[in-house]
Each structure stands twice: as C-alpha cells, then as structure tokens.
Nucleic acid binder design. Structure first.
Lengths: 159, 159
DNA sequence: CCCAGATAGTGGTATATGCCACTAATTGGA
DNA sequence: TCCAATTAGTGGCATATACCACTATCTGGG
C-alpha cells in the first residue's frame, strides 16, 4: 500500500539486470575512486593482466564485449599510460595488449580497494548468495541466443 | 583444462554483472530492433507508462538511475515524439513526464517484441531461475551501501 | 602468383550513465 | 519580509558500449 503497487520494471529481466548493474557499478566506482579507475577499467586491466598479452579480439570475447567498444574503452587507459599495444609478430592484423609497469602498479594498488568493495558487497548479500549469483550471471553471459533459422553454417537446405 | 584456467572476471561481482548485462542487453536490443527502440528506452517508456505522469526525480529513483542521466536518456525519446514533459502545477521546479499518443502506440507495439525476448530468454534459463534471479537483482538495486560514518544528517559532532 | 572471401581493428555516430557546477524554485525561519 | 539552505533539473564533460562502414591483412583456391 505504500510503495511498489505497479509491476514496474521488476518483470523485465533486462531492465532488472541493468538496474542492478547501475547500482552496483556506482558502488564499485565509488570505492575505487581513490585510484582514479572506474570499475570497468579495473576489470579490463585485470583481464589483460591474467592473459598472456592477449589480442584485442580475445579480450573482447572473454568480456563478452563488442570489439570496437573494447577499442574505445582501451583508449583512456592507453592515454594514461597503463596499457600499451603492439602488433602480433605472426599476424599483422592482430593487435596485442599488455600492461605497462605503471599499469601493473596501478592494478595492484587498486586491487586493495577492489577487495574492500567486494567484501562490503558480500557482507551485505552474503558470500553464498554472491557466489550463486555470479554463477547465474556467468551462465547468462555464456548463453547462445541464436535462433537457428539463420542457416546452420550453410548445409541443410535439403529438399 | 581446456578453457577458463585463470580466475578471469568471474570473481568480481561487478564485472560479472556488467558482462551479463552486456550480453542480455544485446539480445533484447536485437529482438526489439524492429521497433527502433533499445531495451533501455522500452523500459523507460514502460516506467513512464505505469506511473501517473511521474516527475523526473521519481522515475530516476525507481530506475535507480542518476537524475541527469535520465535527462540525457529522455532526449532521444522526446526528439522522436514518444514522450513529452511539462512543469508541475504546484512546484515549478518539478518536471513531469508522459507518453504522447505515438509513445503509447509505440510502447504497445514494442511490447509484443519484448514478450518474445522475455520468453526466449526464459525458455533458455527457465522461468523459475529467471524469477529467482530477478529477485536477487532487485535486492541489489535496493541495497544500502552507506557506511554510516558520513554524519547521520548533521548532528553528532559532539567531542 | 592473384584474387575473392574471411579476419582483426579503427573511426564515426548514437545511446547509456555518472559527476559536477549551475540555475531556478521552494521552504523555513529570524 | 528576506535570505540561507534545500530541492529539482540542465548542460558540459568523460567513460561505456553498440553498430556500421572501412582499411589492412591473411588464406585458400585456380
């Protein structure tokens, strides 16, 4: 009788997910702010760090992100000297990415803050719940939405 | 042994959430594309629709979104004639929002597509799982991250 | 060896979002 | 009544992301 009387957005999986992402994103950004990095940037640095000088396409795939979007997102990090790119030796189309020494340092420094955010969040929702949620979210990120009537790699088209 | 050997981003609640949001967002956007609306815009139109000519601040709160971000997001919808704003009669600071007739029509039309997306998604993850997930995400959106040492509304300062 | 087709990135354009600095209104006293 | 504090939005600026049209390479036939 006081608040949510109407369906609101809570029925739309997409809207609900985005809303939570906005909220959590603000929280992480807030906690990370002393480092000067946004949550997204921290995640990107980390992903680069755990890879072996990954190619941009590889990173984009791992992060379930559009390649061009990755390129754009990378720019401020390159500009600020945390990341550098270089052309692959065997395939000049491929551009690989690595952290600079400052990028390494910044990543380590920011990881402290990240831990704080992570812990504070998990203290609120519970470690179990957080883990469960991450699994569910990873499942979504891995879903295959293709309908199928897109021609299964040529073939078919029988009679 | 084949793929994910390193921690990746799956440990960061924020990164995991964003990654899933990117994936799901693309799917919804894709399914809604015949309408010309993005998932976010559809959600916004819907939120306006279920409200009673809501004030911008009210919408921002319900969507857990920054007020200025809402203003920006609203612009294309106003430009395209789906939404209009007007000043509140009792408080001229307040700007209220409503759908135009075309906005109404567009919303209804797009709801068909939205249902498709919603159903296809839930067919993949299961209705139960989807509902559970939405509850968890709503919880996150409703969390109170405030630490407390922010001075409880002035006062204190005793010494 | 050469070209058609596939691959990997880049740049431009548009929306999504947030923060900050301001402006316009309101409100609550003194 | 008049001003300080509060409240609601706006605009500017920066990052996050996507899609599309291109460019630069590579690859696999002929």
């Amino acid at each position: 009788m006081s608040k949510t009387a109407l369906p609101g957005l809570s029925l739309c999986n997409n809207a609900t997910l985005r809303r939570a992402a906005r909220k959590l994103g603000r929280f992480y950004d807030d906690v990370l702010s002393p480092s000067g990095l946004k949550g997204t940037q921290y995640g990107l640095l980390y992903q680069i760090h755990v890879g072996s000088e990954p190619a941009m396409g590889t990173i984009a795939e791992e992060m379930v992100m559009d390649l061009s979007a990755l390129g754009h997102t990378l720019k401020p990090l390159i500009r600020d000297g945390y990341v550098e790119t270089f052309t692959d030796k065997d395939d000049r189309r491929v551009k690989r990415v690595r952290l600079t020494p400052q990028g390494q340092t910044k990543l380590e420094e920011t990881t402290q803050l990240w831990s704080t955010a992570q812990q504070r969040f998990e203290a609120l929702v519970g470690k179990e719940q957080a883990a469960t949620l991450r699994v569910a979210l990873d499942e979504i990120a891995a879903l295959d939405f293709e309908l199928g009537f897109e021609m299964p790699t040529a073939a078919a088209r029988s009679d």
